[in-house]
Simulated scan of single mutants.
Amino acid sequence: MTPPLALDIDGTLTDPEHDRIDPRLFDPRLFDPLLEWPEPIVLATGKAFPYPVALCHYLDIPIRVVAENGGVAFADGVTEILGDGEASRAVAQAYQDAGHSLGWGGVEPLNRWRETEVAVQIDQPEAPLRELAAEHGLEVVDSGYAYHVKSPDVDKGKGLEIVAAAIGVEPEDFVAIGDSENDVETFELVDRSFAVANADDAARSAADELLDDAHADGTLAVLERLREP
């Protein structure tokens, strides 16, 4: 039986060179399976809420997303906002007051629409960010693309539980594909989990299977295996 899918985006649907959606997503080999997938597809990402919504729109699949590492969950008209966005913004301000930068330059579209967390560019100092987050009762998660300042009781797994309940599917029925530590809770929740070859150590340890292929190649390989003939 073809299972419902929980798909990460960055590092999982992207290409390795440009951090962009792999153009082969629009190749019939992958695009057609997503369009024709008979079970729900949930995009679960660390990106701000508008990003996975837009991707669902352009892929022409129902909008079912977990965004901001579980801070926002949406499916079939049901929206849940979790986490403490005000506290995250306070950490970001304290970090900048201490002389650091969020790292995105003068215009920060990656944070402008975040409701529950703040993202800091991965090349910025990590230790002071973690210290300030702890002072505010928050944590920092490394997605491999950014440091995410978030509430400790929010994660993609809890977000997937909300989406699954909204669409009447057991979360344990999902198959998940991901690449980083923010996918661990999802991996622990679902029936089967796959880490693409470029995954970090946390994702590798939590996944049921480590794939031979990286990025979108790994995702494509799993979809070809799971799709019913």
Rank of each mutant, 00 (worst) to 15 (best):
G77E: 10
A206D: 12
H136Q: 03
P40D: 06
V78N: 05
L223S: 03
G168F: 01
P171V: 11
N198R: 11
D60W: 02
A206S: 05
N198T: 11
I162G: 00
A206V: 04
I21F: 04
V42L: 04
E224K: 10
V140L: 02
T2W: 04
G159A: 04
S180C: 08
D200I: 11
W37V: 00
L129K: 06
G103I: 08
S205L: 10
H57S: 00
A92D: 08
K47E: 12
A44P: 00
D84E: 08
I63H: 00
K150R: 10
A87P: 01
A75M: 08
L30F: 15
W113V: 06
L35S: 09
F187Q: 09
E117V: 08
Q93T: 06
D27K: 13
A197W: 15
E228W: 09
S143F: 08
F194M: 15
V154E: 14
D153A: 15
G168Y: 03
A127H: 13
T2N: 07
E181D: 07
L43W: 00
R20N: 08
M1D: 13
R114C: 01
L34I: 07
A98V: 06
P229L: 11
R225Q: 15
G144E: 14
N111K: 01
P128W: 11
Y58D: 01
C56P: 00
Q96V: 13
V190L: 10
G159D: 08
V91A: 01
E161K: 09
D217F: 13
D212C: 05
R225H: 09
V149K: 02
D213E: 15
V91Y: 02
S88N: 08
L110F: 04
G159W: 11
